[in-house]
Amino acid sequence: MNPSEDPQRLNRRVALGWIASATASIPMLESLGEAAEIAPAPRGYGPDPDVVRRYSPGDLWPLSFTAGQRRAVIALCDIVMPADDISPSASSLGVHDFLDEWISSPYSGQAGDRKLILKGLGWLDAEARRRGKDDFATLPKSEQIALCHELAKEAKTDSRKFPGSFFLRMRDLIAGGYYTTPEGMKDIGYLGNVPMADWNGPSPEALRHLGLEAQE
């Protein structure tokens, strides 16, 4: 199933009734900035949450990507972290849901990202329209990737200048969201978090790699 068409998710958002405020893939960047600010401010989890419970995006505060924003973010997820021989794509791990949770966060720490990311997604759509398409998600994949390379160059030149800054932040959040999943951890070579009766130190292969003798 295309994750952007998950009916449960749409129902939840519709039920919350404030989709309209964030709907707009309005071409004017200024308006998008404002749209970000008028989003309602749901409450956080408080100073004493149940930390043992397992949470999913949307459990604690409503998600807020529009269907169009969601499609663009899914496309970006799979450009930044595509499937390969070793591990699956970011969208197949639900990293776009994490991004939605992130930009919908009630906390001040994510407010800047919300503004930057919604503005950036609007910029991507405007750029796609300039190229004769409806939005970023409907651009052919090769053009999406070409556009990302342009942004990636700008980001390396000046990490603080929009829209390169937007791409850098998306890249970091998607990669971080990816490597914090069990599949991402396996890909990167994290083999811990396993209860053990004893821990025997580095493997002989690792020691050989470093040119070190085995520990006494």
Binding site: G176, T180, G184, I188, G192
Partner: peptide, 8 residues
């Protein structure tokens, strides 16, 4: 264990 800063 990777945290959100992993990959950057």
């Amino acid at each position: 264990m990777p945290g959100l800063s992993a990959g950057r």
